[in-house]
Amino acid sequence: MISTQQEGNSLLKDLERIKKKTRISNKIINNQLDQIIAQIEEAKISNDYSQLKDKLQVLYLLRKNYKPLTKIKQTNNECYAYISKMGKNMDKLYKKNLQYGQEHVELNQTILTKLIKNHLLRDGEFEAYEILVKESGSEESQYHQFFAEVQNIVDDLKQRKLDSAIKWAEQREKKSTNNLFYELLKQRVIQLVQTEGINAAIYFMRNNSSFQEQSQGRLYEICLITYSLLLWPNIENTKYYYLYDDEKNWPRILKLFLEVASKSQNIMIKSEIRTVFSAGCLAMPKLIKYNQITRNRSSEVLVNDIPIDIEIGKEYKYHSFFVCPVSKEVTTSDNPPVLLKCGHVISKLSAHKMIANKSKLKCPTCPIETKGADLPELIFI
């Protein structure tokens, strides 16, 4: 079996060949480019400059000098062949018996049942939920009553009824729900204008104590609503039309309610199952393509990390991450971010390397020093 040192020497030889070939390629390419530049300069002298700038003239010139371009392409191909050869050599030296694709994950039945129950509750499938609880012999979900109440409010909002939502927000009046409470009351004003007329809306604004309280600090918005009343019903082509755009306002209020309700229970807006399914559908095309490309390769396939970027949108990003400014690597649980005395953050491994045998380390961003013992770990949420 080839020793580690022999493997390293073999790869170093390949690297030297690549360096040598790159230097030769650069000389050849530069010579060919010099020839093209010289011929272009000659064309500038013998031809009109304005014609030279014309795309057709340039294309003609390039076709005329096709041999230098062919030589450049051939040289590049030879250089990349050496790089490809080194990659194949690495595959041969470090070939292992690897399991391709993802490992089979055993799902915990109790956790899976809990996820399915919460998914059914979120979707308002209470009958299916009751059957699952009975057949699985599991306990009632702690969110059963909460989701039942939320589903009733959601149904009302879809029918453009505000009473239940306003009552719910008023009972939970906190900083986190203040904006929801105000938006519901504002929508009630707009609804009164549309259904009962301007006088009913003005009466509500003047006499409803909750609206008066929620209006504090929102003078500009209240002025906009008041100005819009002067133009009603000829509001369509004015800047106040957004207040009466039901096709946008009702879905926005429904979304805001679901966000606030979910936050009040520290749960996700969408069920975990639906979120995973949606993210999987978005990522599947790239995953299939990646699997087809790597299926017959001997390079290692990582189980937890795939070396390609799969963009599925910000709404599916739930975890913050930190890139160390020193190592340029993403921190992990084994190499967490640490806080320096000055307030700057680097990875724990980078900090230990910078300390070495010293008792202090100098911040890579500013000149302040930190003791090696004073490196609290940070947790990003």
Rank of each mutant, 00 (worst) to 15 (best):
Leu287Met: 12
Lys175Asn: 14
Phe322Met: 03
Ile267Val: 14
Lys360His: 11
Gly124Ile: 02
Ala201Glu: 01
Lys348Phe: 14
Leu256Cys: 04
Glu140Ser: 11
Glu42His: 11
Glu247Ala: 11
Gln159Tyr: 08
Ala38Met: 13
Pro364Cys: 10
Asn9Asp: 13
Cys342Trp: 05
Glu183Tyr: 13
Leu378Ser: 07
Gln187Pro: 01
Ile288Phe: 10
Asn335Ile: 06
Gln212Ala: 10
Asn30Pro: 01
Leu254Arg: 02
Arg122Val: 02
Ala148Phe: 11
Arg63Thr: 11
Leu98Pro: 00
Asn9His: 13
Ile253Glu: 01
Lys328Ile: 03
Ile116Phe: 13
Pro68Met: 10
Lys362Leu: 06
Leu162His: 03
Arg297His: 06
Leu61Phe: 15
Asn31Gln: 15
Leu93Tyr: 05
Tyr80Trp: 13
Ser3Thr: 15
Glu130Arg: 14
Pro285Lys: 13
Glu259Met: 04
Asn291Thr: 14
Asn179Thr: 12
Ser10Met: 13
Thr370Glu: 02
Glu127Ile: 14
Asn26Ile: 15
Tyr49Arg: 03
Leu375Lys: 03
Ser262Lys: 02
Gln57Trp: 11
Asp374Ile: 06
Cys223Asp: 12
Glu149Ile: 08
Ile18Lys: 02
Pro251Tyr: 12
Lys328Ser: 05
Phe322Asp: 00
Asp309Val: 13
Gln214Ser: 04
Asn77His: 10
Ser278Gly: 08
Gln99His: 09
Asn97Leu: 10
Gln51Cys: 04
Leu61Asn: 03
Met205Arg: 04
Ser10Ala: 11
Phe380Pro: 01
